[in-house]
Simulated scan of single mutants.
Amino acid sequence: MSSFISKAGAAFVLVFLLACVPGAFAHEFKVGELEIGHPWSRATPPGAKVAGGYFTVTNKGNSPDRLLSISSDISDKAELHEMGIKDGVMTMRPVTGGLEIPAGGKVALKPGGYHLMFIGLKRQPKQGEKFPATLTFEKAGSVTVEFAVEGMGEMGGMEDHTE
Rank of each mutant, 00 (worst) to 15 (best):
S3P: 08
S3I: 07
I5S: 14
S6G: 15
K7P: 05
K7R: 13
A8N: 13
A8C: 14
A10K: 06
A11V: 08
A11D: 08
V13D: 04
V13K: 08
L14P: 10
A24P: 06
A24C: 08
F25E: 09
A26S: 15
K30M: 00
K30D: 10
E33K: 13
L34S: 00
E35G: 11
E35H: 05
G37M: 04
H38Y: 15
H38T: 14
S41I: 01
R42C: 04
G47W: 12
K49W: 04
G52R: 11
G53W: 01
G61C: 04
N62S: 15
S63I: 02
L68W: 01
K77L: 01
A78Q: 06
H81A: 02
H81N: 08
I85R: 14
I85G: 03
M92S: 15
M92D: 11
R93Y: 10
R93D: 12
P94H: 05
V95F: 02
T96E: 14
G97Q: 04
L99E: 08
E100S: 15
V107W: 10
K110A: 11
G112R: 02
H115S: 11
I119E: 06
I119C: 02
P125K: 11
A133W: 07
T136F: 02
F137W: 02
A140D: 04
S142D: 00
V149Q: 01
V149S: 05
M152H: 11
D160K: 13
T162V: 00
